Amino acid sequence: MMVTFNDDTFQESIREKGLTLVDFGAVWCPPCKTLKPILEELGEEQGEKLAVIEVDCDESPETASRFGVMSMPTVLLFHNGEPVEKLIGLRPKSAYENLLAKYV
Results as ranks from 00 to 15, higher is better:
74 T>W: 01
103 Y>Q: 02
59 E>T: 13
39 L>F: 08
54 E>H: 13
78 F>E: 12
51 A>S: 15
30 P>I: 07
71 S>P: 03
64 A>H: 02
45 E>A: 12
47 G>I: 05
36 K>A: 11
11 Q>W: 07
65 S>E: 15
25 G>K: 09
17 K>P: 05
69 V>R: 02
59 E>L: 14
55 V>F: 04
8 D>Y: 09
55 V>M: 06
8 D>W: 02
88 I>P: 01
92 P>G: 02
79 H>R: 13
76 L>G: 12
8 D>E: 14
27 V>G: 15
43 G>N: 05
56 D>T: 11
3 V>A: 09
9 T>P: 07
10 F>A: 01
47 G>L: 03
64 A>L: 08
16 E>Y: 08
8 D>G: 06
14 I>P: 10
90 L>R: 06
62 E>L: 11
39 L>W: 10
68 G>V: 03
20 T>Y: 11
59 E>P: 10
42 L>E: 07
68 G>Y: 05
81 G>Y: 10
101 A>R: 14
28 W>L: 08
45 E>I: 04
93 K>Q: 11
9 T>N: 00
31 P>G: 04
55 V>K: 03
12 E>K: 08
97 E>S: 06
51 A>C: 03
6 N>M: 01
27 V>E: 15
51 A>E: 13
28 W>E: 07
52 V>P: 00
21 L>A: 08
33 K>Q: 15
48 E>R: 00
